[in-house]
């Protein structure tokens, strides 16, 4: 499939889902009235619903999904492994730890941005530890190993916070937050995440040619003029910016970064440079679709977005392993 047709098709799908995300919700106003309220600001209470609840929710879904898909494609390209995903290098686990500490200490209740800022701090610390562990000349393998170590340590500390939590309500808050959700967000979160996500996305998209060359292995890529140390630094910083910001505002949303690049790879001729923009659109579509599904399946049970993406993602992951096993035979 040509680039233009693939991106066009994904873009059209994304547009439909974005509009659906704006149109579906418990307020139950008609589609025409909702859109009029969004664009003109006329129509009473529905204006507030559209502008302050549904628009930020749809925008966050779009941004988080796009950056998860993009960073997943970039990481898979760098590690030359279809099983890689943004969570693998420990960024999302560390961001979640930062958020959990903010919730547990009560800092999150003190001011609105405390939680996302604590999560971002967690992501920054993870990057520093990763870089120290993996060193300036490390290979893809050292990055994976360092990421798994960071990930496991952050998970253990998160469990420790829950373990020692004296307050069951705080513990429940933490557990729910970790499931990932786009409910009850506002434009504040959009503006907080946007600069990080834009910067990180530009950094990741700039890596296309180097990631293409890496198809032939690290030695061949380096001999073709690719500066691997710089590529890895930009990759980790870009991933940290987008995943850290995403986790900060919406919690952990798993499997999008794993599944989307894998599904789209056959349509992009296997080239990371083509896969990245396609995965960004595909990831945004998947998160918006899941978020619409959450609202349709259980409108009054507050089904968490991260739960749904994992529910869909895990069986897919099993199928992936099954296929890999058969191909290896």
């Amino acid at each position: 499939m040509s680039d233009r047709r693939l991106l066009g098709a994904l873009g059209a799908l994304l547009l439909v889902l974005f509009v659906a995300s704006l149109a579906i919700g418990p307020a139950g106003e008609g589609f025409g009235a909702s859109m009029r309220a969004l664009f003109t600001g006329e129509g009473g209470p529905i204006v507030a619903v559209m502008r302050e609840i549904r628009l930020p929710r749809a925008l966050l879904g779009l941004m988080i999904g796009a950056t998860l898909g993009l960073s997943g494609a970039a990481l898979q390209g760098f590690l030359r492994n279809p099983l890689a995903e943004p969570g693998l290098i420990g960024i999302s686990g560390s961001a979640a730890l930062g958020a959990v500490i903010a919730l547990q200490t009560g800092l999150a209740a003190a001011f609105l941005l405390a939680l996302p800022l604590a999560a971002l701090a967690g992501a920054v610390i993870a990057v520093a530890v990763l870089m120290a562990l993996a060193g300036p000349r490390g290979t893809a393998l050292t990055l994976i190993l360092a990421g798994i170590a960071v990930s496991a340590f952050a998970g253990a500390l998160t469990a420790l916070v829950l373990n020692l939590s004296p307050n069951p309500y705080a513990a429940a808050d933490i557990v729910f937050w970790m499931m990932g959700s786009l409910a009850d967000r506002s434009m504040v979160q959009v503006w907080l995440a946007l600069p990080f996500m834009l910067t990180g996305s530009v950094m990741l998209l700039s890596l296309g040619r180097g990631l293409d060359a890496l198809t032939l292995g690290e030695d061949a890529a380096e001999a073709m003029g690719v500066n691997l140390a710089r590529l890895r630094l930009v990759l980790v910083l870009g991933t940290a910016a987008v995943v850290g910001a995403g986790t900060a505002v919406a919690g952990a949303i798993g499997f999008v970064g794993l599944v989307v690049p894998h599904v789209l790879r056959p349509y992009t001729g296997g080239r990371p440079s083509r896969l990245m923009p396609a995965s960004a659109l595909g990831g945004a579509a998947m998160v918006l679709a899941a978020d619409v599904a959450v609202r349709l399946i259980a409108p009054d049970r507050d089904l968490k977005l991260g739960v749904l993406t994992a529910l869909v993602g895990a069986p897919f992951f099993l199928r992936l392993i099954w296929q890999t096993r058969r191909a290896g035979r």
């Binding site: 198809t215 001999a223 003029g225 296997g270 990371p272």
Partner: peptide, 30 residues
């Protein structure tokens, strides 16, 4: 350097299912 010397490592690595033409075009990277 990449325009002065080409290097073929011993490991024959092709990470992704790319076409032969795409693979050969990667040689034009520098």
């Amino acid at each position: 350097r990449a325009r002065a010397a080409a290097w073929m490592p011993q490991a024959r690595e092709v990470a992704w299912p790319v076409t032969v033409e795409t693979l050969v075009t990667l040689g034009r990277t520098p």
